[in-house]
């Protein structure tokens, strides 16, 4: 069962008199529970594709279906609802709410879903445990290290147990040790909760964890390789 179906997707951005084509004729499907990554040099269209999957942007041509809904046809409200209920975003620069505590940041998606206080509390504490930040719930982002911030961002993306997590360069600001910790956490969540992960990255540390590598070049799919995960979750290449 494919939860993301992309067919002949083209994305053009208006530029001066003409248009810049960021994605050309991309066709891709993602199954539930995949741990996949969009890999490519800067400007190859990774973020653009992720944004369209995340219904933050609309396709110029072609069709993108996420969980059976056509992204191009959604109005703002429907798109917001799709994101609210089914998607978690992890950004390169964390994008945490600076004046809110760790707890409040992670609680935020649950507030949007209007969950009751008890349910929220339990879910937030679970998510903080997944990322090992139970003791930092009262801290605010400016008091945290980069790795801790990224872990909060993961907890925020995962707390509502969405069908999919879209992660744009989630490790760009992290050192090797932190990157590995975070990727292991995500791997674990992928295994335990069947969450589909789609990364956009050019970071080798991330690439080595991926079960599926989709190479983008100038807005086109250049290569699409799937690597069978071992039962222990360990991969062939590892630095």
């Amino acid at each position: 069962m494919h939860i993301i179906r992309i067919k002949n997707l083209t994305k053009r951005f208006p530029m001066g008199k003409g248009a810049f084509t960021a994605l050309r004729n991309v066709s891709l499907n993602f199954a539930e529970g995949e741990f996949a990554g969009l890999i490519g040099p800067s400007g190859s269209g990774k973020t653009t594709l992720l944004n369209i999957i995340g219904s933050l942007d609309a396709p110029s041509d072609g069709s993108v279906e996420v969980l059976g809904q056509s992204i191009g046809a959604l109005n703002a409200k429907e798109a917001a609802r799709l994101r609210k209920e089914n998607m978690g975003f992890i950004f390169q620069s964390y994008n945490l709410l600076q004046v809110h505590t760790v707890y409040e940041n992670v609680e935020f998606p649950l507030l949007l879903l209007k969950f009751g206080a008890d349910k929220r509390r339990k879910m937030v504490l679970d998510a903080l445990e997944w990322v090992g930040l139970t003791d930092k719930e009262k801290s605010k982002p400016p008091q945290l290290s980069g790795g801790e911030c990224q872990r909060v961002a993961i907890a925020r993306a995962m707390v509502k147990r969405p069908a999919m997590v879209l992660a744009d360069e989630p490790t760009a600001n992290l050192d090797a040790a932190n990157s590995h910790n975070i990727l292991k956490t995500m791997e674990k969540l992928n295994r335990e909760l069947k969450t589909t992960f789609v990364f956009a990255t050019h970071d080798d540390k991330v690439i080595n964890y991926l079960q599926r590598k989709i190479f983008l070049l100038d807005g086109r799919v250049d290569k699409d390789e799937t690597i069978r995960p071992t039962t222990t979750g360990d991969h062939v290449a590892r630095n």
């Binding site: 609210k84 975003f89 994008n95 935020f108």
Partner: peptide, 16 residues
Amino acid sequence: QKEIGTYIALGYTRKE
């Protein structure tokens, strides 16, 4: 702006 984008990515509508 980033915060606004974050709200939207997390499922807020722009109106909200």
